[in-house]
Design a binder for these strands. Structure first.
Lengths: 215, 215, 215, 215
DNA sequence: GTATAACCGAGACGGTACGTCTCGTCTTGGC
DNA sequence: GCCAAGACGAGACGTACCGTCTCGGTTATAC
């Protein structure tokens, strides 16, 4: 959620044409244009035609390499994440800290996530991709596999470490457990079902770790 | 989530024209056409023109009373819920049971919710509305206020009863607590981030009630 | 050739849509734009899109009523002819004179035809239509039927009168005879196979009437 | 009209590149592809890309040696004529016979011309070239100079012989005279303004030689 | 015998126009 | 004045070609 990791090997998705001859200049211009337009006019008013015009590129150059504006945006967004990761230092950039205190570590990373969710560079594209993914299952699965799951895996890892340290019960399934605090945050942000604050995510962590029932 | 309640008083949203002369016949035909088309061809390929044609109605009759296909679908879906509720008996239809055992009651209602989520009559429209709501904030708020919040309020009520019965700690905020099991389910369903089963929701309830940390 | 006659009854060619609701304003604007563009940039660079833009009209309004730019231009040109005819007085406007001297009358009308062929308002569109008609047989037949044949019929009539007056042999087929002077003129003009002058058309009439062989 | 003569010296039209290194294999393949495509799908649907693909040739190889598909087709058609001429024997192949009877000789050659006009190998390309020439004046002049005039010159020669023999009046201009029978045929064929038969061309010759007026 | 220049096949590229589709507005005639 | 019908201006869709521009590869002289 708060992460995108290393140089994901740039999957060769739509490779009918000769990818070695591909213009990297155009590819970057298209990414930039797509992200800029989604930020400026919103996803629905962003058109393939508009992206092409803004990028100074023929429409066919877009259709040659992608099948829809959603695919373009997804790749542009992935690329943005990779760039950000690379800019920030080694690949380990966004990993969840392990200070030995699982509660504190989760609170830290969730607070960072909240901040990122409202970073204007990220908000519009990720909302748009999430929305498109709900209705276009193929895209949705791609979105989940490439963006969501890698981030969630970090929580799985951190929770396993906590289990090893005796801070989380051994019989807990970490893949489900992480949803107790990640999903509520995701829903509030996506659907505006409630305010999203650091206090809120702290509470989520507390509730999730210690449960609702009296001890 | 698993509920839609009473005869929501048919909000008079777009009141320029004279509502008293409105053709109920056309209104119903539009609802039916919208739901049918979303089910058959999917939301993106459902068009206002298509709805009008299928309903045997002029396009203006749609634009006179609604501002977008999303609004039409939202109202059609609300109406569908009302009909279902009315068909099923009294208004209390979908309320959460209170057998005195909060864990059992939550498991029961979440299992029912899972079944409903995959009811073909409901899935396509509610996915579509959720998706549209992510990107169109105004619609999103309407969607949440009219469909989501009423359902969530039932959980709030049930959790408060559990607090009164000493099954949930008193200092817990029920509005946040309910998200521990509702949001993960919502996310798995919406984003296909994992399998959705009765076993899964049972686990969510157990984790949420008793926490992840050892006691 | 030198003529376009009366209010040809405006054939209802492509009548799927409801012609009674048709916007006359748009129709006229399209005619004007088509003729202007063909005159200004030439037929090949005239595009449906350009006509629509110039006419302040949606492209669909063109495609609703015509099947190609050639059809638009043909109708626009026919309309231009009708207007010209109407402006000039009664319907009899362009008929071939009958002074009793067939040679003089033909020379008169062919000289007028030459002048018209090089009238800039007429030249570009009629060249373009003729060219398109060579290759698109359907259009070609329409072009001939609506523009060419009505004009040629005037020659037939005049030649028959000449036969009655004993100035042309009775066994001559007027439909073929007229081609002796009309076709050479048409070919020179269309294909630039030679200079087109009043002297030239006078010569054609003389040759055609008296033949090449010695008497 | 019914003729194409000798090894027209392969005009060095577009001589930027080094013609000595030119691939004759490609040139022939391009000719073949162009003629085949025009025959199969018609001139407007014949594209440079299509010709290149069919010829197994890069597009640049076409653009290197020609400036338009019309130029390609013109050259291909000229080449076809040369080949036909060469196949048929000496260069004199299509010359107009001189039996001493000008009427008979003209009838003979016009009948042959009619047959050739409807030879499927020739019809599509020559129509297309004629059409393109109407609108593209530069091409039109090339078409006339390379294809039409050489044929017409044969008529001039034959008519001069007839004048010497006293079968045609001395003061007749042969270049105009030949149009009396050639142009009507051309127009009927090109514009479908009437049936084209041997009887028709015979009639043309009779009318042209002896005139329409009584003797 | 190698260098070096060119044509060549291939096809990506920035563009333009195509003909279709849908939008949201407007207009007409019937009830 | 609502309604069915649907024409209208607008403009994006995805496709097809345009003519230009690399990119190896293959000749084919010129050193």
């Amino acid at each position: 959620m708060a992460t995108t990791r290393k140089p994901v090997p740039t999957a060769p998705e739509r490779p009918q044409p000769d990818a070695t001859r591909r213009s990297q200049r155009s590819r970057r211009a298209i990414y930039d244009a797509a992200l800029a337009l989604v930020g400026e006019v919103g996803y629905p008013k962003t058109t393939v035609e508009g992206i092409a015009a803004r990028a100074g590129v023929g429409k066919q150059t877009i259709y040659r390499w992608w099948s829809s504006k959603a695919e373009v945006l997804l790749e542009a967004f992935l690329d943005l994440g990779e760039q950000a990761a690379r800019a920030q230092g080694q690949g380990a950039s966004y990993a969840i800290p392990d200070t030995g205190d699982i509660a504190a570590d989760l609170k830290t990373v969730l607070r960072a996530t909240v901040d990122e969710l409202y970073d204007p560079k990220f908000e519009a594209p990720s909302r748009a991709l999430a929305a498109e993914g709900l209705v276009d299952e193929q895209l949705g699965r791609e979105f989940v596999a490439k963006l969501l799951e890698p981030s969630l895996q970090l929580y799985v890892d951190r929770l396993r470490a906590a289990q090893a340290a005796g801070q989380v019960r051994a019989e807990i399934d970490p893949r489900i457990a992480l949803e107790l605090f990640v999903s509520p945050l995701a829903q509030r942000w996506l659907q505006h079902t409630g305010p999203v604050s650091h206090a809120y995510t702290d509470t989520l962590v507390d509730y999730a770790l210690h449960g609702l029932a009296p001890r």
